[in-house]
């Protein structure tokens, strides 16, 4: 579903690479957790997958389409929720969702059914007629999630999706992720909450200083020499400390 081939990115004026020679493949039916300390390159990688940044080297393929060469086809396959969804504050929730519905070409009947389902699930039905600027951060997050799920994307990409969600919504959201992959779809998300990754992900990748330093199932990571029985937290700390976090 996602294939990154030798992807590198260095921001203009930066002394180091944000992402360096990243090779990664995420298969259909997988929930893939992308972990790393602050500034490790998680968001840069996600932005390259969704077409918000262009890699300096390498290719990003989504559902077989090159994100840069066949942008529209690739984007049709995915739904994206950024870490801080910046939605049009002066549209109502319903107007925003209808805009997304129109852009993805979702017919009226399907749209109504899905909107009803997700708005009820996220308890946004009553607020949907209000301006987005009147929403709390959690409500904006849920609206962005609804928008990203509206076209039932084959690939669901989320940057720190649990931030701003209350425990109930967070639980609900994990269920949505599981349901989504049960239908053969893929979920790719970044997170700092290691417990969530441990519970939810089929595979995790750990990135540090722009390089993928570990990737596999929890069992595979634990089987690496000297790490038998380690928790994900311990593994993460050991791996990222070795590399040295760039945080000051």
């Amino acid at each position: 579903m996602i294939r990154l081939q030798g992807v590198s990115k260095r921001y203009k004026g930066a002394s180091t690479h944000a992402v360096r020679s990243l090779d990664l493949e995420v298969k259909p039916g997988e929930i893939f957790g992308f972990l790393g300390p602050n500034g490790a390159g998680k968001t840069t990688t996600i932005k390259m997958i969704v077409g918000l940044l262009k890699p300096d080297q390498g290719r990003v393929l989504v559902n077989g389409h090159d994100v840069n060469a066949e942008a529209v086809a690739a984007k049709h396959s995915m739904g994206f929720v950024p870490d801080k969804p910046d939605l049009y504050p002066r549209l109502t929730g319903m107007e925003y969702l209808n805009l997304i519905g129109d852009v993805y070409g979702i017919d009226g009947a399907t749209r109504r059914r899905r909107l009803q389902h997700y708005l009820e699930m996220f308890q946004l039905t009553e607020a949907a007629g209000d301006l987005i600027q009147s929403y709390s951060r959690g409500m904006q997050q849920k609206l962005a999630l609804t928008g990203a799920l509206l076209h039932a994307p084959a690939l669901f990409i989320l940057d720190e999706p649990m931030v701003g969600l209350d425990p109930k919504s967070s639980h609900l959201f994990k269920e949505i992720m599981r349901d989504h992959v049960a239908k053969g779809n893929t979920v790719f998300f970044s997170t700092h909450v290691l417990e969530v990754a441990e519970q939810l992900c089929h595979r995790v990748g750990i990135i540090n200083q722009g390089e993928l330093i570990a990737c596999g199932t929890m069992d595979e990571l634990r089987k690496s020499p000297g790490r038998a029985g380690s928790s994900l937290e311990k593994l993460f700390l050991e791996l990222t400390d070795e590399g040295g976090s760039d945080e000051k």
Binding site: V50, G51, L52, A71, V72, K75, Y88, V103, Y104
Partner: peptide
Amino acid sequence: SNDLPTLVPLPLR
């Protein structure tokens, strides 16, 4: 404008 990061990931030419 602030809306380009919202619009670019959508399937729009």
